[in-house]
Design a protein around this nucleic acid. Structure first.
Lengths: 194, 194
DNA sequence: AAAAACATTTGCCATTTGGCAAATAATGAA
DNA sequence: TTCATTATTTGCCAAATGGCAAATGTTTTT
């Protein structure tokens, strides 16, 4: 069964960062492939060179890695209507130490590296738009992570609830706990106390 | 008394991110102003639209803000040989809610917004170089912040010592404690226990 | 040098969070 | 449905960190 997916969200998103005429928009749409992931599927895996850039049309991804103690840590979640790029290795063509997993069923709009480069060569505004998008995404991550250190676990959990209201009860506790920097049991107790 | 400052570090830094011919380099050098800050001086202040971009030739800056409880929080430190830009408001021309302060005596190489725009218009590679620099700086911040949540305070302190070996004892405890997400007294105890 | 202002350490105790294992609940497979 | 697997909750106690105020140490000013 295939879900009905349009390019509208992607195009509107791109247009927030720069102008594109209809011809350019058509070109972009032709380079996109729809990829559907089931909850739990991987979009990219550690140790491989990530070769794709994706716009999340629907669903939520998480980026994670194993720390030195061997615990799996969720570095951050990426909500729909955002791009998912491996910030560490997309540019450098080095293997990633992180992997990207679907937290819920997802519909992704995927650009292969080649299409991406084609667009960069064909559409003069492309690089500028992508840079703005990347910078904005990174700034948001910094702004989200930075205050977390100064807040206690309960506050961090409440903030998460605000950002992803209907997610907290649909994902494994372990995903969320490692993102919040606490253990599963602590998160369980925090939940109870609210 | 004026300290002797050359443009070498700045130019070498820029050249890591793109090619520049001698004529372009001269142009850049002509746009730069040397600004010396004493320990404790402010480079930019909250509530104002930051109008400058600076390369830290020597010294260390910190970016900080007041949280909802009114505590002053050090968001991050910026070491010499890096650019200091207000990531939130440089592009948007909105007032910053953060301020930037010299943690040690500093020598900054400052571009006014106008010079910066001139260079952008004159040197074709300029925007690309600056984008790469900005992205790299942001990625480093994310990568530094993200694991901090998963580590205990002692580990965070030890990591800081590694990154800024000769700084920890020369700055107020409060700067460092708020960066590490703990109280002054806790940091004091952690120090003792090492 | 003395005083004042500021920064750091310490004691005491409360609160938060972790670690581990067992109990319970939820999910998925046969 | 029933069994097996996996996820979550809970109890118990230990460890980490916070809050506050007093003591001590350091720096700056007069």
């Amino acid at each position: 069964m295939t879900i009905f997916v349009t390019m509208d969200k992607l195009i509107n998103y791109l247009l927030e960062f720069g102008q594109l005429n209809q011809q350019q928009i058509d070109l972009i749409i032709r380079k996109v492939q729809v990829l559907e992931l089931k909850k739990g599927d991987y979009f990219s895996e550690a140790g491989k060179i990530p070769k794709q850039v994706a716009f999340i049309e629907k669903g939520i991804l998480r980026v994670c890695y194993y720390n030195s103690k061997g615990d799996e840590i969720t570095k951050y979640f990426i909500d729909q209507n955002n791009f998912a790029v491996d910030i560490n290795s997309f540019n450098q063509k080095i293997p990633s130490s992180e992997y990207v997993q679907a937290v819920t069923d997802c519909a992704l709009l995927v650009f292969s590296t080649e299409s991406f480069n084609d667009l960069s060569a064909t559409i003069i505004q492309w690089d500028g738009i992508i840079n703005k998008i990347t910078e904005k995404a990174l700034v948001e991550k910094v702004n989200k992570l930075s205050p977390m250190l100064a807040e206690d676990a309960t506050t961090r959990y409440l903030n998460f609830l605000e950002k992803f209201p209907n997610l907290a009860n649909r994902i494994p506790l372990s995903y969320l706990a490692s993102y919040l920097g606490i253990t599963q049991s602590s998160l369980s107790r925090i939940r109870k106390s609210i």
